[in-house]
Design a binder for these strands. Structure first.
Lengths: 328, 328
DNA sequence: GGTTGTCGTGGTAGCGCTTCCAGGTGTCTC
DNA sequence: GAGACACCTGGAAGCGCTACCACGACAACC
């Protein structure tokens, strides 16, 4: 019983189990009829010979795809360098592994979303996870891709989407600030045209309004660098501020750095909160109070849905949880 | 001239260009002979019809793989949660995209590296990037996989590897400390059995010896939490310490946090350095002086080599560069 | 007894591509 | 002039798998 040098094929399994290739295929793919006896012999043979189905052959025969594409939309290819993108890709790669599939990472220039056509013409594409999409991009999704595309962030009638509950997270954070006695609460936002920022800002404004407090916003861009600048601006415009809501952890860290540099105590004089709960939020001084952003869960859901046919409903949101630490 | 609903195949291109399928294949794959005229007509047709080769069919015919597998070795599946792994996967996904391939992420339990057999039997696997491997794991790599496996970290005669120049980075950091007048330099190491930690520690010890200074090490584990504990230990054992070399940025951050909590000025009383240059190293207070760890470059090289046939030489190291900031 | 079913099975035609092979042109050399 | 050799082309045999189809058993129902 000498073991062949090349990996066993379905035909080898069928021969070994004493059934036809069709039957072996049916058993291993779990489709169609097969007697318990045949089933047993086939699985045993597959097991014994260490059979691994050839994804390429299967995809070719079934007309299914062989990889999931994470498509990061944006003005410049620099979007690909965002660690956030890597986390999405990592989660997607975990989803793909048991299916014998893989993930590729592409950039979709926001200027010409026509590159989507190329994806639609590629039989290897089993699903697409859209990142950072705009309404324009969503409209450019070809019909041929419908049902295989899931967007993380903004969605549309045609393209289902998943995202974190920005409003909920912001409410949790602002609510916490209010509950701990803060009343002069400012916010450093993201770019106004970004939906995720927009939802947070709207939630913040609403809560302030309902509390009869004035909304005070300064625009930032999710970075720590911009957070520093924004902190200075906040201090200048509202010297009596007693809390700053950062649109992201990086922003909050920048704010804290500037504040402390100016001799302002955090959280003593001013409380600061973030959003994302990045790993380092727990190790900075002071440790950051923030709202979680379950990126892995979101990406896993998006990848799974994209591969399964895109059925996740028009918009699925994942809850954001308050993490109380020291900064607020 | 109505456009068909299904993506064009090679046969469509051949027909449109007025050549045989063989010729079209040769032109598009760039193999074998083809007259300039034929070449022109085929590429024009492919362009006009928006042809995208079917990776699955190609892989089936060529017997090549369809995805790259990032294989994280380790005791528990928790290794997959390391952000470092995500960065490697992200870089690999960028490499795969233009090839029509994808990346999958698998866990290889260190107890039974026999799972490698399964990979060897899988025709879909075009290459493997091994992470966190040990000598045992390297020895378990089946012959069938030789030439398609590249390890990030430790290597072996059979398995080529790429890694950051830990020794060089550590030398840069220790050299900087020495140059700025520090003489009582302690180090918080990683687990002694990890090669990357070992190389750093050896470099540190050698430099200290050559400078006629005593080596002072405390063991850590790359985390900030453990860094805090280690800082306390350093302070207790060597109250006169004036510099601490962290094995990682997270470690350094933990050390700094503890030091400042104990009223020690950084870098005034004690200088602290890290290793990795994570994004947040620039935004903490004080900003961290550290040595770079070009993860993306390393992973790109590993993925490229794994897909190209593994020829990178037995061990390729990537330089680590000193980044001077505030903490040292 | 036929007519329906549901089950279980094997044969075989593809899926879209590459690659080998057999054939055709030419051009160069002895 | 014949051979040798480069260049260029199309036909066709697969790569490993799925899915359709035809076939046969057997049971249940009028």
């Amino acid at each position: 019983m000498t073991v062949s040098d090349r990996p066993p094929t379905l035909a080898d399994i069928a021969r070994d189990a004493g059934v036809s290739v069709s039957t072996a295929s049916r058993v291993l793919a779990g489709t169609g009829y097969a007697s318990p006896a045949a089933r047993g012999r086939v699985t045993a043979a597959a097991d014994r010979l260490g059979y691994v189905p050839d994804v390429a052959a299967r995809a070719l025969a079934r007309g299914s795809g062989v990889r999931l594409v994470v498509l990061a939309a944006g003005a410049s290819a620099a979007v690909l360098d965002d660690p956030y993108v890597d986390r999405v890709v990592g989660a997607a790669a975990r989803v793909c592994a048991p299916l014998g599939m893989g993930v590729a990472l592409n950039w979709l220039p926001s200027r010409n979303p026509g590159d989507l056509r190329r994806l639609a013409a590629d039989r290897g594409v089993g699903g697409v996870v859209l990142l950072n999409a705009t309404a324009r991009v969503l409209d450019a999704v070809p019909t041929a891709l419908r049902g295989r595309v899931v967007s993380i962030g903004i969605g549309s009638p045609q393209v289902p989407s998943v995202d974190v509950d920005n409003a909920g997270g912001t409410e949790a954070v602002v609510g916490h600030l209010y509950a701990t006695g803060r009343r002069r609460i400012a916010m450093v936002t993201g770019p106004h045209w970004m939906p995720c920022s927009g939802r947070s800002v709207t939630a913040y404004r609403r809560m302030m309004r309902e509390a009869g407090l004035p909304a005070r916003t300064v625009s930032g861009d999710f970075t720590a660098r911009r957070g520093r600048v924004a902190a200075r601006e906040v201090l200048t415009r509202w010297p009596d501020v007693d809390a700053v809501v950062g649109i992201s952890d990086a922003t909050a860290l920048g704010v804290i750095d500037r504040l402390r540099g100016d001799g302002v105590q955090v959280p003593g004089d001013v409380a600061v909160t973030g959003f994302d709960d990045i790993p380092l939020a727990a190790m900075t001084t002071p440790a950051l109070t923030t709202a979680t952003h379950p990126v892995a869960e979101i990406a896993t859901a998006a990848a799974t849905a994209a591969l399964a046919g895109g059925r996740v409903g028009p918009l699925t949101t994942f809850p954001s949880r308050l993490v109380r630490r020291v900064s607020a």
